[in-house]
Nucleic acid binder design. Structure first.
Lengths: 238, 238
DNA sequence: TCAAAAGTGTTCGCTATACACCCATGG
DNA sequence: CCATGGGTGTATAGCGAACACTTTTGA
């Protein structure tokens, strides 16, 4: 045993597990959900795909760690990371005892992604996701569940869309996330009466002879959402 | 520095945080929610009240750790522990870097509680909770929020009641947890039409001349809940 | 004896749901 | 030209919300 090469500088009276964060990042390509994966460059699971993440530093919170690793490995900086579960199975990492604090986030369309060093990062459509490293398959299933639950209570879906979007865009997004089909007219009615959207000014220019708009765009107004939330609970159900 | 006295036997190449679990345990005394606290016997925060919990062993999951500590410190063994958040503030423990995985659970009425060794454990009414050790005040607020959210989707409230309970009992429970007031008749109607309850056989014996029952009791039927859940989502809203 | 709790049904208004037509776009 | 997608309105049924009277219990 060459102890010199593997210097163990940090000692504790009791054993400590290693702690990592992992991020499940979703985007929407207009048709379906996509998920961001990075390809592992080192053992274990070298070559396999996994969620971006890494070890917690002693001077950062888990949230900061997740943001840092995400920036390093994929150049993404989501506005809002949501911690959804901590995974602690004893054997989930073959190297040593590692627990991981998992986050999910939604990012607009397909912002730039690029590895820092040799990291390869890539978007995967939901039905093209390969077998993942470690217990990341399990983490992914939990993330999907957490996302579905969350979107019932918070209008986080808008983080996936451009500032201006059409009602069918929004509907496709919700249908992709919740894996259901809605009636167009009822979906629109519900969205409008929630009073968190605003018509785009450009709609006025696109009125045809019969008085109907074409290619109608909407905007999500966070302030309106805050106002609405104070009165009644947000509840997105169909 | 007397290194001998403080033997550091576990060494790592990179620094590792310590990992603990903490449990926020709720019970219902028929009128309001209560929370289980233990009094700390050692520094830091010696004498202060905190949630039962302790350090994660290397051969157990966080869930097992939470159950073990709970059993040791309070002699409780809840059927279902719900992990709701992991707290990672850098300075949340003055001794060293410690992150804690927090759980909440609901237990029936006032089952036995007793410390293992010198641990003092005690139920506190919601409005009589003292300042807590560490960041446990913060953890508590998060636990309450998590409980309220959870009870909208899962009929976990029944874990707090005896096998047989009256409708007013159940209503008081929900009112205590959600901090709202319901109309008796609408509450009962909603509960009944969810089709997860069953009348107690003893109700038949308690019918008076006018044909009404008195002291009517109900039971929660998990199987009915499973059946119902397959058809439509459980949604407890008023 | 009296006040508070508990058992029981009905009405109304809103909203979720189902549904049809016309126009625009692009292949 | 035709198929697909998108813009718009109405009718109905079911559920949530408001509400009153009587009996029982216990102070």
């Amino acid at each position: 045993m060459k102890e010199k090469e593997e210097q163990k500088e940090y000692s504790y009276k009791h054993p400590h597990p290693a702690v990592t964060t992992d991020c499940v990042i979703f985007c929407f390509d207009g048709k379906e959900l996509n998920v961001l994966l990075v390809q592992r460059g080192v053992e274990p699971f070298k070559g396999a795909w996994a969620f971006p993440g890494g070890f917690l530093h002693m001077d950062e919170t888990a949230n900061q760690c997740a943001l840092r690793e995400l920036k390093e490995e994929t150049n993404l900086s989501p506005e809002h990371l949501e911690q959804f579960h901590t995974f602690t199975d004893v054997d989930r990492d073959p190297r040593e005892r590692v627990i991981t604090i998992a986050y999910f986030a939604l990012v607009k369309k397909r912002e730039v992604i690029g590895g820092d060093d040799a990291t390869v990062a890539k978007w995967f459509k939901m039905n093209e996701i390969p077998r993942l490293a470690f217990d990341h398959d399990f983490i992914f299933r939990k993330a999907l569940t957490a996302l579905k639950e969350k979107i019932h209570f918070e209008p986080i879906g808008f983080e996936l869309l451009d500032e201006e979007f059409s009602m069918p865009d929004l509907q496709r997004l919700y249908e992709a996330i919740l894996d259901v089909k809605f009636d167009r007219r009822n979906f629109q009615k519900k969205m409008i009466q929630m009073d968190i959207l605003e018509e785009s000014p450009s709609n006025e220019k696109n009125v045809n002879k019969t008085g109907r708009s074409k290619n109608k765009k909407w905007r999500f107004i966070p302030q309106k959402y805050e106002d609405m939330k104070r009165q009644k609970a947000f509840r997105l159900e169909f």
